[in-house]
Amino acid sequence: MSTLAEMWPFLRAGFTNTLVLLALSLVLSTILGTVLASMRVSPVLPLRAFGTSYVNIFRNTPLVVMFILIVEGFPPVDIRPNIEAIGLNTFETLAVFALTIYTAAFVCEALRSGVNTVDPGQAEAARAVGMTFTQTLSVIVLPQAFRAVIPPLASVYIALTKNTSVAAAFGVVEATAQLSRMNEQTVAGTGVLFFGIAAGYVVIVWVISGIAAFLERQVATAR
């Protein structure tokens, strides 16, 4: 137990940071991804083209490259954001940027695949009663796409959880960076430390999967 007591401050500090990164980039990438998915199914060609290009570019760029581009590319042109209000320094903010821009492409595709499962007649009927594109999407199509979207979206968020660890090499002291710190500062074996960190990630992923399963059941019984 002394090992756990020794590890605890590191784990707490690390996972607090990991959860902040996760929460912010999850919310922001979902918003951005929804906008992109709307673009990809919109009747306006330039919007469709933009959505498609975005997905093709950022889904096919390795996350580490995104981090390098943003963390090493923004400051020289004087983009040094920080969100002091919630205690985010420049590196943490840039990490949220990188994770959001990257993950939004995957959120977009998960949503689009869900939209494709909805019978096109539903959208036709909505248009026929005079709904605008936005109403058709938000009132008729997306709510029905939601159920089909839960499993792929959960996968995207689980991947995002693990992807936050990339920030450990870009100035952010999150859970994975704490693993290295503990390696330096404690006498616990690497295996034990690894287990502590891995357990933290497993808990987060487990919560996401649990919420997804719960939502799936809710939607299923609502029919």
Binding site: G121, E124, A222
Partner: peptide, 11 residues
């Protein structure tokens, strides 16, 4: 408009 396949909003 009334469609062949009804197209009622399923949800």
């Amino acid at each position: 408009m009334v469609f062949q396949a009804f197209n009622l909003f399923a949800h």
